[in-house]
């Protein structure tokens, strides 16, 4: 009984956007695996879902700290039916049909975070969803996205959010296309606030493109400019024409369904009076 009581799981289930992914780590040095998995449990705390059925499984092979590949820049590509991600600190590969993959990295939480972001971006592309470089929050049961490049104000507007707004993320927004429309989900993909989002979801009510300026101002955008700006903020790494086409179709559909505005704002909390 004593031994059984000390057995600790060598896997964690991380459910983001309603997609449970099992991460298993069975390093020959058991304590190393457990320490890594406990680190993941801490990082993805609100997104752990141990009783869900996984839609995908990743094994993690831990290596000593150092370069895993010789790639300076990230590479995401499809080769002979297998997706490959390569970066200096990371190599991941998976077979979408087999629903299994392998991540090779050192015992750090950042490399697997990159792999998960890219995995979700590719999965969403096929399912009519998007990962958007945007903060998002739920207020009055409706989700609002605030998109923009670094420095546009995602962190600022997240920090200014009133107590009744649930922050879904300050960095990477997760959108799924469902029957009733687009739904925004919380993500653990944190930006400068280093704060994991709330694991909740709500129908997307508006997309705001952020600009900081001398006054608070909301201006509607035309369809083509809205699509162009949205596409600029979609996270998509793969050089795959079929998926690029799907992402474009999804961006067009989102702009057709959801109002898109340019939000110029003064960095103080009054801007949230406009977000209702």
């Amino acid at each position: 009984m004593g031994d059984l009581a000390t057995i600790t799981s060598q896997e964690v289930m991380i459910e983001i956007g309603g997609a449970p992914i099992l991460v298993r780590c069975e390093s020959p040095v058991r304590s190393e695996s457990l320490e890594f998995l406990r680190m993941l449990e801490g990082r993805y705390g609100g997104f752990l879902s141990p009783n869900s059925l996984p839609v995908f499984e990743f094994d993690v092979e831990l290596m000593p700290p150092g370069r895993i590949t010789n790639r300076e820049e990230i590479s995401v590509r499809l080769e002979q039916g297998r997706w490959l991600i390569e970066r200096g600190d990371l190599r991941a590969e998976w077979d979408q049909n087999a629903r299994r993959g392998l991540i090779v990295q050192s015992a750090n939480p950042y490399s697997i975070d990159v792999a998960l972001r890219i995995f979700h971006s590719l999965m969403l592309a096929r399912e009519g969803g998007l990962l958007v470089h945007a903060a998002s929050a739920v207020r009055n049961g409706k989700a609002f996205l605030f998109a923009g490049v670094s420095g546009a104000g995602k962190t600022t507007i997240s920090r200014l959010a009133p107590p009744d707004a649930l922050l879904l993320t300050d960095e990477i927004s997760y959108l799924r296309r469902e029957e009733q429309g687009f739904v925004a989900h919380g993500t653990p993909f944190a930006g400068e606030l280093a704060r994991v989002g709330e694991n909740v979801q709500a129908p997307l009510a508006a997309l705001y493109l952020l600009h900081q300026g001398p006054e608070n101002l909301i201006e509607p955008l035309g369809h083509s400019e809205a699509v162009r700006k949205l596409m600029e903020n979609v996270l998509f790494f793969a050089n795959d024409p079929e998926l690029v086409r799907m992402v474009f179709e999804t961006a067009c559909e989102l702009v057709r369904q959801v109002p898109v505005y340019r939000l110029t704002f003064v960095p103080d909390k009054r801007v949230w009076e406009l977000i209702v």
Binding site: H223, R245, F248, V255, R256
Partner: peptide, 9 residues
């Protein structure tokens, strides 16, 4: 085609 405009990519 969206809002009376054609976009191609």
């Amino acid at each position: 085609a969206l809002g009376g405009e054609m976009m191609i990519m």
